[in-house]
Design a protein around this nucleic acid. Structure first.
Length: 559
RNA sequence: AGUCCCGUGGUGUAGCGGUUAUCAUGCUUGCCUUUGGAGCAAGCGACAGCGGUUCAAAUCCGCUCGGGACUACCA
């Protein structure tokens, strides 16, 4: 099955096209995403998921989710559950193929026995430290282990006893017998099994020897019938070993293809550093909305569509890359613009009294829910004598390009009336505390029958009806594009002190209170928001996903 | 230092011997507008360098320079 040939093809798709042409895998395409359950997935993982799933889906193939759970020391059930949730949420459909490497432990063990019998693997008595020393380095060849010429029968016996738990952790390993002088360090008799008396999150205490990645990974791919094993570039040097094991075993041989992992500017992308942020209390957990984790982005209000689109636009190549954070923002805005219902919300309220509107009266106005989507319909919003507008929408002494409210000036209150500011009331400190305004009753709905134009339109809420909300404003987590690019300083030094700003007394349309947790919407003229998971009916908490594209900020800057 | 990989606008990407060098993002300007949103239009901005092959090179070859990965019983 071929996709539109006109579409540009990344190098991986080109390889698959070629394989399909030659019939290498009988036209099958089967990929996998193999996370280790030792942390939460991040946007970089999302890229890997989307490349693997996207390709399988495109070619009418299959996609497996497989936990690469070969190291019980680092892995936890919490992470397994979180990863499954994230992958599903992203929309990468693995059907019934939620798999575990640990389910193949017996088969891998049998393969290891095979290899020992073939004289291609041996049990080694060297300690970790000794092994390192024997390995040599980039320029000097390694030395053979004293165990290297151990008879096959002896290795076989020792390996079985390793499995039955006879030996303490670290006392022995099973190693492939390749070449201690190989220029590729991975080929210098790499260990295949280590002894680890640890409880495994999936297999419990069944095993006390665990396979090492290089040995396990190709086997997992082979067992599952994977065709194209897509991984990141740091495994390039491991491909030789991947191929070696499969060839020596003479079993089904998938093809490993490497592509560059994705970085995003103004954040960090490795599980290790994300863990440091969580454990060092620099953020409030793995799902902190400032985190580049999928859980964090979901909580912040990013949609699966926007993340997928981001991955698509980022592309696939082998060059180290850093994608602009702005692209991520552009992608969410694109999606949310189409689907997010509009509301009005005032972040920094300034009271407005409409002096020609009767006290105690209220009126119902109609507003469009989403100008991009006619099917979204309309809603009603209450208008009363006392309103709140955004403090930044009023200026006592406006400069030339300020189109909003000012003394004596008329603007439109969205979906309501043309409103003129007649009087500015200040407190003892000279701070503006209230505006006295009048409406033109003929402009109800926002249009003037006489064709009179008004420069600005501002949002507002009825003071009597508005609901209080706490609004979380997020900014980039770091102040520099590449927090890791400064080897002399820890990346935490570049944490942005203003990455979270909580606004306490925002006034929002009452309808917001009825929205379910996680629901995303737009506050007109302000940005996209959603209902936080910690929100409650009597204490609304909103997250700002991303501000609207702000050409106003540029005008202000150019003043 | 050795092995392997990679260099196209600020960023990311297309290109597969002949193109005004693609698209997106970004930035600039204009139009439009009941969101200073969205939309529309125009513009800015790149083949790392040097040699070679060829009628013709971003594309093929060589060298130089630059970037990345690798010395875990992690993945």
């Amino acid at each position: 099955m071929y996709m539109e040939e006109s579409q540009s093809r990344d190098f991986i798709r080109q390889v698959i096209d070629e394989d399909n042409k030659t019939g290498k895998y009988d036209g099958r395409v089967h990929t996998r995403f193999p996370p280790e359950p030792n942390g939460y997935l991040h946007i970089g993982s999302a890229k890997a998921i989307w490349v693997n799933y996207g390709i399988a889906h495109e070619y009418g193939g299959k996609f497996n989710l497989r936990f690469d759970d070969t190291n019980p020391i680092a892995e936890e059930k919490e992470f397994i559950d979180a990863i499954v949730e994230d992958v599903k949420w992203l929309g990468a459909d693995f059907e019934d193929r939620l798999l575990y490497s640990s389910d193949y432990f017996q088969q891998m063990y049998d393969y290891a026995i095979d290899l020992i019998k073939k004289g291609k693997a041996y049990v080694c008595d060297l300690s970790a430290e000794e092994m390192k020393e024997y390995r040599g380095d980039y320029t000097t060849p390694g030395r053979n282990s004293p165990s290297r010429e151990r008879p096959v029968e002896e290795s076989l016996d020792l390996f079985v006893r390793m499995k039955t738990g006879e030996f303490p952790d670290g006392s022995k390993t099973l190693r492939a017998k390749i070449d201690m002088a190989h220029p590729n360090m991975n080929m210098r008799d790499p260990p295949m099994y280590r002894i680890l008396h640890a409880t495994h999150p999936h297999t419990g205490d069944e095993w006390c020897i665990y396979p090492i990645y290089d040995w396990a990974h190709g086997l997992e791919d082979s067992i599952e019938g994977i065709t194209h094993s897509l991984c990141s570039i740091e495994f390039e040097n491991h491909r030789l070993l991947y191929d070696w094991f499969l060839d020596e075993l003479d079993i089904y041989h998938p093809q490993q293809i490497e592509f560059a992992r994705m970085n995003v500017s103004f954040t960090v992308m490795s599980k290790r550093y994300l863990k440091e942020l969580v454990e060092g209390d620099h953020v409030n957990g793995w799902d902190d909305p400032r985190m580049p984790t999928i859980a964090g982005m979901r909580r912040r209000g990013y949609t699966p569509t926007s993340i997928r689109e981001f991955c698509n636009r980022a592309g696939i190549a082998k060059k180290p890359n850093t994608i602009a954070f702005e692209l991520l923002e552009a992608c969410v805005r694109d999606d949310l613009n189409k689907i997010a219902p509009r509301f009005m919300g005032v972040l920094d309220p300034l009271k407005v009294v409409i002096t020609n509107f009767p006290e105690g009266d209220s009126e119902v106005l109609e507003a469009i829910n989403n100008p991009e989507d006619p099917d979204a319909g309309t809603r009603t919003i209450p208008f009363t004598r006392e309103l709140f507008i955004e403090r930044t929408d009023f200026m006592e002494e406006p400069f030339k390009k300020f189109y909003r409210l000012a003394p004596g000036r008329e603007v439109r209150f969205r979906y309501a009336y043309f409103v003129t500011c007649n009087e500015v009331i200040k407190d003892d400190n000279g701070e503006v505390v209230e505006l006295r305004c009048t409406i033109d009753p003929a402009t109800k709905g926002g249009d003037s029958p006489d064709g009179r134009k008004v420069k600005g339109t501002i949002h507002w809420v009825s003071a009597d009806h508005a609901v209080d909300a706490e609004v979380m404003l997020y900014d980039r987590l770091f102040t520099v594009e590449d927090p890791m690019g400064h080897p002399d300083k820890p990346f935490t030094e570049f944490l942005n002190p203003d990455s979270l700003k909580a606004l306490g007394h925002c006034k929002v349309e009452p309808a917001i209170a009825d929205l379910p947790k996680g629901a995303g919407f737009q506050f007109e003229r302000t940005g996209y928001f959603n209902i936080d998971k910690d929100s409650a009916p009597d204490k609304l908490v909103l997250n700002r996903t991303v501000p609207l594209r702000d050409s106003w900020a540029r005008i202000q800057k150019g003043r």
